[in-house]
Design a protein around this nucleic acid. Structure first.
Lengths: 398, 398
DNA sequence: AGGGGTTCTTTTCCGTCGTCAATAAAAGAA
DNA sequence: TTCTTTTATTGACGACGGAAAAGAACCCCT
């Protein structure tokens, strides 16, 4: 059985060390000098910050013979030892819970889905506890097979929930999806699992994952747009994820793109989500073609078969998304916008419209913003939760 | 004659001292302990930071007898000595230049408008030089009258220009209004005036003024929306003004609120500016009523007289602005939105529509965002430029 | 008048952190 | 071998900010 986790803490908590670690974590193996440049520190500071991290096993040296320079001493690359620690990320949706076991580099080791019979906090909490137990057992199993000396510790649990979440407090203030209000989830989950728990909004968690381990690595200003059941948006400004003064931020889904458009569940007309959300697309295709659709997959299939009405619905959805992205670009001027989410399964159906609408509605050099897609698996959300746990562990200022 | 300005520099440049100074500057007279609380520092650090600043004359002690507590030692309030230094702020518009002489607290001492005969960089530069000379003479005049010992030094010149401005470089990358491209304005103006020069985008400059000396004081996330010839928006996120990766940010004027709306000069349809910009309003009223209008003032007058068509145009403008503000609130979740600009002369004509549209389009608790108006004089833009100069002088990280 | 209580301010000490400048190390080139 | 070039490390140093305790100013109560 896995021993009660020691309260292992990150060996350093100075600004410089934290910055060095996150730089190495997110920007791959780097020479110390290069780390110094990117983190804005002196080489000496990097050396001094790296040493205790290597001693503690979080970083390892890693000379690469490939990129050896023609001249001068070759660099001693430093990288994070992913196998040094494990984390668990959990994403709670309306009807299932997805959990992943990741290493310190946030690479997914194991993924599990469990159905959620009920949305009451107690039930969800019990399901999370079961899932965590299962993932811990999995971690132990891997342990036993490799016969390592020291057991790899699981150092944190991140939980991602949609809605208004106070990460600092670890509470879910209001989640319309789960019908929760003021649930101190971090505290509860810490009690049942014995792990340090971080709770954050799901889109923000995904954004953290992109910021550190994805297409946002090294950027100080970018946006993540998720296309799926809802349309969400995570924003990174000045290198930090935007949380919003009142818990609301990145609600691109409820940006109005057509005031005469259809009614959205938020009460407004012509929100991006009311045009390009999964439910909206299914409904519109049903209305346009008369075909009864069970889910979004069937809608995609129909459109792929070239049914005109269906294709048009997707085209309009793409236009709405492109406009929404242009709005973000006009307001914030990000370096990059990353489109992701399970809705990308239909990406070929609206890729062109997104781009066209974006370019048309982007003002001036905002159109230079780099828009790219990342077809990420659904576990990515849970991975985002794990990323928040990693972030909390290394005490990076959020 | 005014002597060649000595290269006076701010006596401290540690993060703590900078933070202490900006806290006192923007949040009025404060007790040291209170400064410590607000700046997140120890009381000792504040004492140590304050001393050299008092010695250099930038801060002064200022006991207030009024708010004496019932118990304990009364606080020794600390405030910025506005009279310690002067700054000049200049705002360049299409047809005139506005200059102000301010003190260190950014209070306007003198304001001057001069017409701009031509928009060529050389002409503009010469006009700026003349205006600065005039303001410097004014400063000397005041000097002579008060018979002070030490002449109050003018420590910086801030220039605000609309368009894509690189503040770090001090260059105007592209200003459609002036038809400038890559003009190294800071360098040029520094040569002709002999003052340290800061160049920034006009809306951002105004936002800095609000952040430090206006309704944004002490807030870390807010937006400034300017209503006038154009519709602009300055954003402060995480306590810093958003500049945008490509020089574009806060382009609320080109957020689409009605894709079927009228054509905007940016090439799109239904931008906020195409509905609520000054030119758009004048044109719409002309179309609706058939009355030929010379300028916006006449449009306002017409609407105030209760002419139905004119009122409706303003109502639609208010709706567009309200939607634009809601978009900002949905995306960023600011604590406050400050509406300003010369368009506020007509505020009573669309106040209600702004509020209604904002509340309707704001998602969830984004509607809690505090929306207020600040009827600021036109010199306020120049004051913003002075604020950027002050900011540069005290080396606050922008 | 003289404590006692309360709050603000300052002092002193100290750990720590990051830079500077010099030095060591690891190559290939001459 | 020795020089050049680039990377990494060392050790001294200065400075900064925090903790804790003392000091200061004031009111109130006895």
């Amino acid at each position: 059985m896995r021993p009660t986790p020691r309260a292992e803490t990150f060996p350093v908590n100075t600004p410089a060390a934290s910055q060095v670690f996150t730089t190495v974590l997110s920007q791959g193996p780097l020479a110390r000098l290069e780390v110094a440049r990117r983190a804005g520190l002196s080489p000496a500071a990097v050396t001094k910050a790296v040493r205790p991290l290597i001693e503690a096993g979080y970083l390892v040296e890693d000379a690469d013979e490939a990129a050896r320079p023609a001249l001068g001493r070759p660099a001693n690359l430093v990288r994070v030892d992913g196998g040094r620690a494990l984390f668990i990320g959990v994403k709670v949706t309306g009807d299932e819970i997805i959990g992943v076991l990741t290493d310190l580099c946030c690479r997914i080791r194991v993924a599990r889905h469990v159905p959620l019979p009920d949305r009451a906090p107690k039930v969800v909490l019990a399901s999370i506890a079961d899932l965590v137990k299962e993932l811990l057992a999995e971690a132990d199993g891997a342990q036993a097979r490799t016969q390592d000396q020291d057991p790899v510790p699981v150092l944190g649990l991140g939980i991602a929930v949609s809605g208004d979440v106070d990460r600092g407090e670890g509470t879910v203030r209001y989640s319309p999806f789960l019908e929760w209000r003021d649930v101190p989830l971090a505290e509860l989950a810490a009690m049942t699992t014995g792990l340090p728990v971080t709770v954050d909004n799901d889109v923000r968690a995904l954004t953290v994952a992109e910021q550190w381990f994805g297409a946002g690595a090294g950027l100080s200003d970018f946006a993540v747009v998720t296309v799926g059941a809802g349309i969400g948006c995570g924003l990174v400004v000045h290198g930090r994820v935007v949380a919003g003064a009142h818990g609301v931020a990145g609600e691109i889904g409820h940006v109005t793109v057509d005031p005469a458009g259809r009614l959205c569940h938020c009460g407004n007309r012509g929100c991006v989500e009311a045009i390009a959300g999964e439910a909206a697309i299914v409904r519109q295709i049903r209305e346009a073609t008369g075909v009864e659709l069970a889910d979004a997959a069937e809608a995609v299939a129909l459109a792929h078969r070239g049914v005109a009405g269906a294709r048009e619905v997707y085209a309009r959805a793409g236009e709405a998304i492109g406009r929404g992205i242009a709005t973000v670009a006009n307001l914030l001027g990000p370096e990059r916008v990353i489109i992701s989410g399970e809705g990308l399964a239909a990406y070929d159906l609206f890729a062109e419209q997104i781009r066209e609408a974006f370019v048309a509605a982007a003002f001036g050099s905002a159109a230079q913003c780099d828009v790219l897609t990342r077809p990420l698996p659904f576990e990515e959300w849970a991975r985002g939760a794990a990323a928040t746990a990693i972030q909390s562990f290394i005490r990076a200022d959020v």
